[in-house]
Design a protein around this nucleic acid. Structure first.
Lengths: 235, 235
DNA sequence: GCTTGTGAAACGTTTCACAGCA
DNA sequence: TGCTGTGAAACGTTTCACAAGC
């Protein structure tokens, strides 16, 4: 629910017309939504789309869409719109998912197991190459749906990260274990952490962190429902 | 990843000192983080805390914390801080989780099953009272860890929502099925939807929607890692 | 005609700074 | 003294409006 980005001055005269470190984080969040919608358009064999059409599909204004895309480059043609296939390729290039990303998962509870069998990650270019737990009963067990892989002890984390060039780690351990695991991931050289444990983690500069607050989402819904109810029939 | 709130004019002269419909949504998001942290303080038997302490635990400034809490009421005492137990109770009252909330889950795939066994929801006051799927092979099957419950066909949704006074529905079906399920939930009288399907949903005014973009989180991490790498060694 | 890309204006959120109170 | 609650300033994001191009 929170994403940290290491602050970065432009420094070099790198030929990035649009400085990626100057992009507002809401625009980064929306970028994957644009990509998903465009991938849908691609499946329907649509050749071009417009900021208006793309925005309507997602509930944003057309100017929001144009401004967002313009942070990353000039992708459209005045009078025509955006060529869907090209825009998909360009956005993947910006995100980096035109290449595949090796990831690891730490914690094989219910949620960890569900993520391992979730096909959505693979479709987007993320491959789980190793799975860890520190429960002796789990270590060595084969992983359903991942032939040839078994659950590894957490102390083999650094080794696997180096061997497989892993840059992203997913934490699905209980809250108490989350910070130590995050520290181990950072020590192993991981550059980004996706945390599902209900705990506030700290990571050093240069490491990105995203936390998924499952209960937080329900509480937000409860708040808005509750607030509407109070407004509708005040007591 | 996106939360809609029905816009609400103040209308009535309801005695809400702090209009809940005027609270910025970032503040609502942070409210559950404050609550979680405070619940932790409570377990450690801390009597009072301060905006500075609470903020540091979560990576926010002290003024951010004070401003956020002040949207919901006057909870602190100058010179002293906030009494932890009282603040926990007041925040739960604001969110509405001082009462238990009945919820239903539609879609018993990997993710749906993982959520059913996830203990975090129950701890926060959310109870899953029914589970639905439209796969004939699944209908009627018992639900592990939920004695006496079985998977119901989707056409019994409205019935259960009414019987059990369910206000929140969780969608864990494949993307193609998500919008029809959302429509069915809305028709059944659901007031809030938590969507895990990778699809942009539309719901009418008066219904809240939160979408959890699992792949989106990974893509955000990839983007920031990728951007840092480009900045560090430009080519 | 239609649609992009983009400065400028409008709007929203966070931080500052301090009066007031324990 | 220490800390909250809150206007005002600073900052960030979205929307507007239009020049330029197909």
């Amino acid at each position: 629910m929170a994403t940290d980005q290491a602050p970065r001055k432009d420094s070099s005269g790198s030929k990035q017309h649009h400085r990626l470190d100057a992009v507002p984080s809401p625009a980064v969040r929306r970028l994957s939504l644009y990509l998903r919608e465009l991938e849908g358009f691609l499946k329907q064999n649509r050749q071009t789309t417009s900021s208006k059409e793309l925005g309507e599909a997602l509930g944003y204004t057309d100017s929001q869409v144009r401004k967002d895309l313009a942070y990353f480059g000039q992708f459209g043609q005045p009078g025509i719109g955006y060529r869907v296939a090209e825009l998909v390729a360009r956005i993947r290039g910006v995100i980096g998912t035109d290449r595949s990303w090796n990831t690891i998962v730490v914690g094989v509870g219910n949620l960890g197991q569900a993520l391992l069998t979730y096909r959505g990650f693979a479709k987007k270019g993320f491959r789980v190459v190793a799975v860890f737990d520190n429960d002796p009963a789990k270590i060595g067990q084969p992983i359903g749906a991942m032939p040839g892989m078994e659950i590894l002890p957490v102390d083999r984390l650094a080794e696997m990260v180096a061997e497989q060039n892993v840059r992203i780690g997913v934490i699905t351990v209980p809250a108490e274990a989350a910070q130590p695991v995050a520290d181990a991931l950072v020590a192993a050289g991981i550059k980004g952490i996706l945390n599902f444990a209900p705990a506030a983690l700290t990571v050093p500069e240069g490491v990105s962190l995203a936390s998924v607050e499952l209960s937080g989402y329900l509480e937000q819904l409860a708040f808005y429902i509750h607030a509407r109810q109070l407004a509708d029939d005040p007591q």
